[in-house]
Nucleic acid binder design. Structure first.
Length: 386
DNA sequence: CAGACGTGGAT
DNA sequence: TATCCAAGTCT
């Protein structure tokens, strides 16, 4: 059951209490200043912890750090977030990816105001019942925001890696991921400290992010190197840490760049709330499909194109990797834009000066950038001469 | 349980 | 350029 690799039993782990003290001492020395981290001794605001933890789900610290402060400045409280329209919140989430998290965050804020007096609950079950709050986030909020060390500690990918190496854990190929992670949680819980559960959790996560990294770990900088079974066995860099990811199949689509002659405003459309990039704005586009060659007439009949015109293809293509696909876009544009396009479903004109602040995905920003560059007068002249 | 769901930095 | 993969959750 306990899946330590062969020979791991030859290594005697240090007592958990001793390890916890060393994690904390390391954290006190190497603690990074992050926008959502209060100064030591300052009580944390559960709202700020919650927002940071949701933003950090599957996103690296540096990316979140760019978005966190503006988001918190705009919506400093649960009440402020709950009062905002979802479309507004999606603007603040633009570029962060996994847009369902923004939907859940917003729905959760409204639920907190309606049923929890605008406060995050401390209770484990109550937290888990909130949209977008799973086992990790519930445990993180309890430990970091409320200082609760009872129940299970937060276990993210960093903690899993640190624990797998510390105890030299390994599994047969084909072991279900759920079982693997259940065992990792059990080992992680065995490291629980006597106090400072929030700092303890962040210490191990920071250690995993900066020292006990996936490839070529910096074991010499590790505060528990002498207690690490994987290091003692010489397998710290070769231990199999998780299942492989499925390759992303390619998909193809065509986007339509429609610029209003009078003022240069651009036609955008909101994607369906469910599904990829849910609720974000983008230039009207076809579906993504396995083969190329979307023609204008075909796109019109598929409802992706706003109007019939003399469409021409802009040079170049836009490639973008999403969770499940790698999509390659061709971009088409028309010189003659008819008036009165309001009939198009969900379409809006957006002034160019407002594009930056809108709820665009990174993919949509790439399309916009590409179209702007390709339709600059100088660029067109250059292309014709070449 | 397996698959869906973004983005950008590191190697 | 290609591949990996990060403070996970939901269905």
């Amino acid at each position: 059951m306990a899946s330590r690799i062969p020979d791991a039993s030859l290594v005697t782990p240090a007592p958990p209490g001793a390890l916890a003290a060393r994690f904390l001492a390391w954290y006190d020395r190497h603690r990074r200043h992050l926008p959502w981290r209060m100064a030591p001794g300052t009580p944390s605001d559960p709202y700020r912890v919650w927002v940071s933890e949701v933003m950090l789900q599957q996103v690296r610290v540096e990316t979140v750090a760019r978005h966190y402060a503006p988001f918190l400045e705009r919506w400093p409280t649960v009440e402020a977030l709950a009062a905002a329209p979802l479309e507004e919140v999606l603007r603040g989430w633009s570029g962060l990816g996994r847009y369902a998290r923004a939907h859940n965050l917003h729905a959760c804020a409204r639920l907190l105001v309606e049923r929890h007096e605008g406060r995050l609950p401390e209770d484990e079950a109550a937290l888990r019942a909130l949209p977008g709050v799973g086992p990790y986030t519930a445990a993180a909020i309890r430990a970091i925001a409320f200082g609760r060390g009872d129940a299970l500690p937060p276990v993210d990918g960093n903690v899993e890696r640190v624990v797998a190496r510390l105890f030299a854990l390994g599994w047969e190929p084909g072991t279900p991921d759920t079982r693997r992670r259940a065992e990792l949680r059990r080992f992680a819980a065995s490291l629980a400290p006597d106090g400072r559960p929030g700092d303890h959790a962040q210490a191990i996560m920071d250690l995993g992010a900066t020292v006990c990294v996936p490839r070529r770990p910096r074991c010499g900088a590790c505060p528990v190197q002498d207690a690490c079974a994987a290091r003692a066995l010489g397998v710290a860099d070769t231990l199999v840490l998780g299942p492989k990811r499925a390759p992303r199949p390619k998909r193809y689509a065509t986007a339509f760049w429609v610029s209003r002659p009078e003022d240069g405003a651009v036609l955008l459309r909101r994607r369906p709330m469910k599904g990829p990039l849910g609720g974000t704005l983008e230039p009207p586009s076809t579906e993504w499909r396995p083969r190329r060659a979307w023609r204008a007439a075909e796109a019109i009949s598929a409802g992706a194109l706003p109007f019939a015109a003399d469409w021409r293809r802009l040079p170049g293509r836009v490639r973008h990797a999403l969770s499940s696909y790698e999509v390659e876009f061709a971009v088409m544009t028309a010189a003659d834009v008819p008036r009165a396009l309001d009939t198009m479903d969900g379409a809006v004109w957006v002034g160019r000066e407002h594009l930056e602040g809108e709820a665009l995905s990174s993919l949509a920003r790439k399309l916009v950038r590409h179209a702007l560059a390709a339709t600059r007068p100088r660029a067109i002249r250059h292309r014709r001469r070449a």
